[in-house]
Structure formats: C-alpha cells, structure tokens
Design a binder for these strands. Structure first.
Lengths: 339, 339
DNA sequence: GAAGGCGACTAAAACGTTTTCGGTAATATT
DNA sequence: AATATTACCGAAAACGTTTTAGTCGCCTTC
C-alpha cells in the first residue's frame, strides 16, 4: 500500500523547502526553471495530488455543496438533483446529499452537521414537517453565519435567500383552462393540505382559471389528502359520490390511482373523463393512456439553483440582494386528454 | 453576520489556553470543574461547534462516504442510495454523490477528485462505459492507497474488494421456472448486451431454467438491446416475428414498452402472454396490469454496502479479507402473470 | 565602493483542531 | 523539612496546504 505523498515528502526527498515545492507545482515565476522541472517530474512520478481537506481548511472553502431534500426516491427531486450535480461538477464542486425524510428534526440535524465547515452553501427543498411546523430558525441561523442558501420548489417567504420555483399557479391555471376549452364542466382537483407552498399555489391557479371562465368554484370537487400517502377507499368514495369529467392532480401517484379506479368502473379516458397531473415523471409517460402532465423541468431547476448558489459563494462582496427565479411550466399532452 | 466561533476565540475571551478550552469541552478530567463550567457555558452561549474540516485534517478521517453511481434518475439506484444514506447518517457519516452518467471518463474523474482526502471510502456501481472498456485501474489505484471500496450490483471479478449483489441468476431462474409452471412454452427474454455483469447472470439463469425443464434454448427468442435506450421499431418487429407466451425483461422499461405493444395488438395479459420484469419499481407497481417483478431489495443492499464500508473504514487492522454478500431476489406477483 | 535591484529560495504563520508532554503550585506523605 | 503526589493548566507539535515576508548572494549602476 503506497501511502499518499505530501509536499513535505517531496521537499525532503529533493532537498528543498516545502514552499519551493508548492510554488514549483504552481509554476510560480519565483522558482528557477530547473528546480521547477525537477519538482514537477518528481510529483508526476509519484502521482502527487494536493490534499483537499488541507486546502479547504486553508481557504475556508470546501468546494462542496450541501443538498437537503425530503426524499431521494422521488422522480422530481432526482431530476433536480441531476441538474445540481451536473452544474456543480462542471464547476469543480462536489455535492453532499442529506435526506430529511420529510421530517423537521432530520432537516435540522442534517443542516447543523453540514454547516460546521463541510459545505460552502445549501440547496434545499423544505420538508413537509418543516412547512407544517412553519419554523425556519435553522435556516436563519445558517444564513446568519454567512452560509448562502438556495431554496427550490418548496420555499417560504420567511427566509431571505435566493429561490427557484416553477410558476405552479400558472401551471394549474393552464391545465384547467385546457380542460375548459375541451368542454369539461365538472373539474375536480386532487391535492394535499395547504401547508405545502406548491399545493396552495396550484389551488389558486385552479380557482382563478374557473373564475376567469365563469365556472363556480365547488368545494365538493376538491379531494384533499393530509399527506403524500394515499387511501384507496377515499378515492373510491370520492368518485362514487361526485360526477366529474376532468381531474387535475397535484402529483402523479394520485392521478394514476384515480385513473385506474375510474377505468375499473368502466369509464373511458379521455372520452368520459380527462386527467392532467403535475410532475412529468415516469408514471405519466408509461401509464395507459399516457398521462398529460404539467412538466416542472426539474433538471433545469437544479442547474439554476446550483448556478445561483455558486455565484453567491464565489462572489466576494456581501450584497444582500436575493432573487427568485420563476420557471414556466409546460403541458406535455398525452392520451389522458383530448387534443 | 456573526462569524463562526473557534476555540481560539473562546480561549482569548476567557483568558485561558486553547488546549484548556478543547479539553474542557470534552469534559476532560484534567480541567477544574469551575473552569469547565465557565468554558461550557460560554461555548453554549455562542453556539460553538467544532470545525469539521479541521478535525478531518487532524484525524485523517472525514466521516464522508463517496458514492458513485451511473445514474441518479433511476429507481433502483435511488433506493440503494436511500439505504446507504440512512445507514451512513445513523453512523455519523455524510454521503457525497457523484454521477458517472454511465461514462468511464466521468467515473475516473470523480474518483480521483474524491480520493484526495474528501472521503474515507467508496460505494459504487460500475458505469456501462467502464464495464465495456473492462478497465479497472482507477479502482486499483484507489484501493492501493488504502481507501476501501464496496461494489454493489454492477461488480467485477478484477477488483479485490467487498461486494454486495443480488443473485441475479437465481432471480431469472425463478422467474422462468414460474413461467414454465404456468404452462408457458415460448418464453422470450429482453435484455442488454452481455458486458453488464447483471445481464450475463440473468441470461445464465434463464438458460438454466429452460434446460432444467427440458425446454430447448432458442436464440430467436432473445431480444438484445445494445444500451438502455429503446427502439420501438425493434420491439414491434420482434413481436410480429416471434410467437411468445411469456417475456422476462431485464428491466421495467423494456417490459412496459412490450406490454403496451402487445396490448395494442389485441393480446390479453396475462391470458395470452405473461410478463415478468427485473427491478420492482414504480412502473411495475402502477402499470396495468401490474407487472410481476423480481425485486432487488435496493434499500437493503445499500444498507449492507454502507455497513461493510464503515466496518472496513473503522477497523484499525489491515486485514486483506474481502467478502461478497449475495442477496436473494424475490418475485412480487402482480397482474401480468397468472397465479 | 556603496546602494540598489534581482533571482532563487526559505522560514514561518495561518487555517482549527487534538494530544502529548511538561510545568507549577498546592497538598499529601514520610 | 524534604520529597512525592496531585490537580490544574499551557506550550507546542501535528495534520497539509498557501502565502507573506524575508534572506542571501550576485550583478548593476553611478
């Protein structure tokens, strides 16, 4: 086992000082060309690579980005992550991922762990627990220490930082408008409780589209789940009770479940009932019929988040200007709607 | 912006030495109880947290694990990752993820980047590019530096290290055996080229099950794709050409595509044709009918990989014993097969 | 021949810890 | 009273870099 070689080893071996070696490897003008050659040759021979940790300690810069997401086994988050990783890697940054598992406590613990020098900044989507608790002190503490944060998708007004979201309201608005143009009258919405910022926005878009088209808002057509987990029975009751001809779902899973249910009741999609779901994931693509989806462009979102964060990290000056980038959603039409 | 507080600050403020502070915070017996109280109170007040980087430099231990996977937007890998993250986190480790994007070069670059002090060990699944090139020198170099590696799922004989895989051969064997028990005669297999270790194993299981049941192996019933991407036309030609009553697919995507195709040709699943796919992911669960799947237990695999790695990292002694853990696959029965 | 400049290199501090080895004073032991 | 013990604390090295501030000898220059 050949141990890692350090500047000190090279210096001792070559009978020069550590600083000379350091400078020679950086091709500094200060060092004579023969010494430089000698050092560089030796370093190459022994495959010298500077120790990242030592450099981090010196520069107070780790070139690591901390990413905290509620769940990794979730298509949208992984696409965002891919965008982050791609951009960060190209800029020479590594990505440390922690999963909050939708829990406030785990989010806090993970942030505290990483905030002690391991990373230069955070990119995160708030956990359900955090949004429920509405407590953002852990974020505040981090920003007060001068560690920048970029929030994506699940954000909050309470924290001053850069954010990147999609225009969820518009996404819902456009989806509902499409339903109406297609002649649908009884448009249902399947969603989660309002403590998710995204659910609120989407609900707002839904209502606005109805009202703009002179359709009365009907509370009975809203099916709300308290969490991401689903209760078959509740869905079944809902569709038995209400007569609907279009469904906007806040995620894929709810939509797919509903589609299978109405199909089993003999309804035809999209003739009898249309579906549009948020998040253009695998399920939408491979459902039968394919589920028309509001694409959230996760990968692009991730790239932008990484770009914003690295920009902040690398800018020397401490401007206190924060921006929110709003991406436009697009509707990917598939077989679950008429076209 | 309150800057991070260090031992030095506390020492200066309290008029004691740095070592005293350090020891006081560790509740060392060497320090008088009043000094300890004073220091601890001060540290608590100013929310002192030791700098991870400095500790890493000192201990030559980062408490970081490097994970290198071919793709993050891939259900199996994310489940494995979840297992890794969960276990590692519980043990106080953080996880740095790099995505090789199935490319040999990116795998090499990422490993070199992380190997310079950023991590204590690697957990990885080989990229397609690496398996194709059959070049594992980057792994060798890392292990020679004393950095442990755990390979999962996509492994190679050429590297001496801990490994965790599922019994792919047995998974395929069981699936085909089930088909035969169900009375199927013309059993097709959809797979990728053989340079994936998993594809080879599964193909072997397929052949063995046929031969054990006295069914001749028929090359024409094997559909091979050169990569993970799919060509609709090729699938269509295949099913137009060959009459098959059961299909074993090496992944979900191939299976789902095929199911939709045969359904559009008017065949009934599972009456006319049965399907089993590897990787029990979202698609299998939500397809209609549901796709019977060979579950790979990704999360468990991740936990084991993390356990093995941390074990190696924390064991002082340098034993040169490497083990391979083989997990048993299970068949999750759904509507795509009769039962 | 003194002052200055330059080329080539080194010493040392700094980043923030941990830890070993002393050191000093007070107390206990003979 | 001399010595040993103990309690408490600090100095300094070490981890591997980078960088500032020299040092030293030699060559110009007036």
């Amino acid at each position: 086992m050949k141990k890692k070689i350090t500047l000190k080893h090279i210096a001792r071996e070559l009978g020069v000082s550590i600083s000379t070696v350091s400078k020679a490897l950086k091709n500094s003008e200060e060092i004579g060309s023969d010494t430089k050659e000698k050092v560089q040759a030796f370093a190459k021979l022994y495959n010298y690579k500077p120790n990242n940790i030592a450099i981090s300690l010196k520069n107070k810069r780790t070139k690591n980005i901390g990413v905290i997401i509620p769940d990794i086994v979730h298509h949208f988050f992984t696409t965002v992550f891919r965008g982050i990783e791609k951009y960060a890697n190209a800029k020479g940054y590594n990505v440390i991922v922690c999963v909050s598992d939708e829990s406030f406590d785990r989010e806090v613990i993970n942030m505290e762990l990483l905030a002690n020098g391991s990373i230069d900044g955070f990119i995160m989507a708030l956990s359900a627990g955090t949004q429920l608790k509405n407590d953002y002190n852990h974020l505040k503490e981090v920003t007060e220490q001068g560690i920048p944060i970029v929030l994506f998708d699940r954000v909050t007004e309470d924290i001053k930082c850069d954010k990147v979201i999609i225009n969820d309201k518009k996404g819902a608005y456009n989806a509902v408008t499409k339903f109406i143009k297609d002649g649908r009258k009884r448009i249902a919405m399947i969603t989660t409780e309002d403590y998710f910022s995204v659910s609120r926005e989407r609900a707002a878009g839904y209502r606005e589209a109805l009202s703009d088209n002179g359709i009365a808002y009907n509370e009975d057509l809203i099916l709300k789940f308290p969490s991401m987990t689903i209760d078959e029975k509740v869905i079944e009751d809902f569709f038995n009770r209400e007569k609907v001809d279009a469904v906007l779902s806040v995620n894929e899973i709810f939509a797919i479940h509903s589609m299978r249910l109405v199909q089993s009741k003999g309804l035809k999609i999209p003739e009898d009932i249309s579906f549009i779901g948020f998040t253009d994931g695998l399920l939408s693509k491979y459902a039968s019929p394919g589920l028309t989806a509001v694409a959230q462009h996760g990968e692009h979102m991730g790239e932008i988040a990484a770009e914003m964060l690295i920009e902040k990290v690398e800018s020397e000056l401490e401007e206190e200007t924060y921006t929110t980038r709003v991406l436009e959603p697009t509707i990917i039409e598939r077989g679950s709607t008429v076209n």
